[in-house]
Amino acid sequence: MKMDVQTFVQRIGKLPSLPIVYQELVSAIEHPNTSIEDIGHILRKDQSLATRLLRLANSALYGFPSEIATLEEAAQLIGLKEIRDLTLATSVIKAFEGVPPELVDVTAFWKHSIACGIACSLLAEERHDPASERFFVGGLLHDVGRLILFLKAPEQAREVHKRCEDSGELVIRVEMDVLGFEHAALGAELATLWRLPVSLREMVRCHHNPARSTGFGVDAYTVHFADFLTTALEFGNSGEMLLSPLVPQQAGDQRLIEDDRG
């Protein structure tokens, strides 16, 4: 049963939501008078989130030499935007905890997504993008549409998987055939629903076809390239073992990769 992505979203009912704390955090950070204490106050409303954030701040991801004991300290050291993005990252992972394990190895899925996020932020840092922190989230979220399919349309997801296994076709092609849209479009719908910034939505929506993005081509290409790299090097497993072709960079784009070294 093929349909467009909006119809699909209307039919499947409630999509996973983000914790209220995230929206509070977003508005607080935009407000110029917000103090570190305010941020700590907001985060403490959600104890499980607070614990996860502290665990992350103390993880090898940051490699701080001494222990970070409070959320205020973490916010100060890591930065408010980074805290906001970590909140989003850990909330997304939590929001999709109910995905059936027989359809996807959730740990491998997030391993791929996190590796892609790290690759994205490294690429953005490399070209001195002033907003490199959001790239991690873009990479982390790029395949979230797949999770929605596993969660909300397991039958169709199984059909896609079966056909790919039998024929060796790419998942994105079979998705178009079976569903009428790609997981990227579905992920973008979720980004819209969650009121995430347009740049993030575009990174998700166009990660297989960066040229389709208006205004965020470089952002989308960053995710596209990072996804290619992490899939090639088998970091985790997004549900697609085969590489989709690497789209050449658009002329006039800020160069992402040195492609002339030979």
Binding site: E234, L243, S244, P245
Partner: peptide, 18 residues
Amino acid sequence: RFKHVTATSPAIEIIKKL
């Protein structure tokens, strides 16, 4: 893994080696 990657470029070759 690379069977659908028909085009080639220096970047793709490097990634393939990795």
